[in-house]
Design a binder for these strands. Structure first.
Lengths: 236, 236
DNA sequence: CGTGTTATTGATAGATCTCAAAGATGGTGG
DNA sequence: CCACCATCTTTGAGATCTATCAATAACACG
């Protein structure tokens, strides 16, 4: 990626917003670039946290596995989003695994570099904090959903969240540009792929979504929202 | 509270660690003090986020209510911990309600003050970020538990987490110094007070815990841990 | 000693997981 | 270009957990 485009992208990333000229130079000089092929990982759970990244292209998913081997999808990351951030400031190790869903490019910063940059540019620290704060709120919302809602609503919420974050509107509704399986949805909503499949089938009959292999099209976002919010909705 | 004791407390709070003399002075000058009686709230959900706080004495719990009126306990806060932090940097409004479980004293900082202080003292921003990062990890762990574990294990985890954070070891085990109802435990583990009651009764029969009105004593932390980790444990 | 809150316990219904099997789908190598 | 294979998806039946409903009991407080 050429330097000017990279600079443009960087300033569109929320943590680098409002940085002065000098700070951007500092940041870019300190960064290193990586490319991760589809299916490969940028880092793995429990690995020593060396760096944190900003995704420049592609898409990856962050997952955690339990001691029993069950997997949970923490979040999907798209271009301009950062990942690996918690580990670099909080703990020693990455709490999850980042797997490329498609070919990914990213710029990385080592722990020390980041620490140093932040001490020099307080703005950067404040921005980062704000992003992490947003994620915390997001995670707490999911926690609330998981403890109070039934499966159908949780699945609806999971799809809506995904759509907001990574959905692309087309004529027939909202689609996702990357492969997403029933299993993924299940791991996002705390259920099994069987239940997801059943639920999607039911929704498909009502014309709310359209399924496919590793593909979901949301045909009626409003209907989905109604389910998520548990509002009464018109029978058909 | 006299100034020197306050200063000592402040520097024991992790976000104020490693601050230089001048920074501590700055922070203390900018702070305001509040006292909140038992049962009262420091702030309420959806209220405009004006300030963030560090608890100096007492204990409070942060809760969220869903649109349907169901409550979820986000966390308990003890002396030296900060709360209301996410709202002040992330969103406009407090995402939860902070209720005093017993009489509480706290020092507060307005949004603007905090922003200003952080720009002056990068260390403060980095420390805060690290704490928020820790909470994010914690919340993600709860999310993982909630989506993969059965109720009994979740309750065990909730008690263990509470014990680590606020438990006091005594001869008979670990106790909590503040009132904690079955309902609270239910809202921490995503279940109902009925199920919590049944589970605790079962554990009491096995000698693992000892119940009481708004009171729980953990008699055998190891046994509880075994349940939480789903390890085989000796029958009795 | 009443009164309201909190906790216990039983019975029942329903949601969801688990187990099982078969049906799609798309990629790959011959 | 086609057959085959691995993976993903669908669907059914049964088991199980847990919420819900309901009633009683224990406790603290004024």
């Amino acid at each position: 990626m050429d330097p000017s485009r990279e600079r443009a992208l960087l300033s569109s990333v929320d943590i680098f917003a409002d940085l002065d000229e000098r700070a951007v130079e500092d940041v870019l000089r300190a960064a290193h670039r990586r490319k991760v092929a589809k299916g490969e990982t940028a880092f793995r759970q429990d690995e020593e946290a060396g760096a944190f990244y900003v995704l420049t292209s592609g898409r990856l998913k962050v997952t955690q596995v339990t001691a029993e081997g069950q997997q949970v999808v923490v979040r999907f990351i798209g271009p301009g989003e950062m990942f690996g951030c918690v580990a670099v400031f909080g703990g020693r190790c990455y709490p999850g695994t980042a797997t490329a869903v498609e070919e990914c490019r990213m710029i990385g910063f080592t722990k020390g570099t980041m620490q140093h940059l932040m001490e020099r540019h307080a703005r950067l620290a404040i921005n980062t904090m704000s992003t992490i704060g947003g994620r915390l709120q997001d995670t707490q919302a999911r926690l609330r959903e998981l403890s109070t809602e039934r499966v159908e609503r949780r699945i609806a919420h999971a799809l809506i969240r995904l759509a907001e974050q990574a959905g692309r509107p087309v004529a027939s509704g909202i689609v996702f540009d990357f492969a997403i399986s029933r299993q993924d949805v299940a791991e996002m909503s705390g259920t099994t792929l069987h239940t997801v499949s059943r639920t999607l089938s039911a929704w498909e009959e009502q014309g709310i979504v359209e399924g496919g292999r590793q593909k979901i099209t949301i045909r009626e976002p409003d209907a989905l929202l109604a389910i998520a919010e548990d509002q009464p909705r018109p029978a058909r």
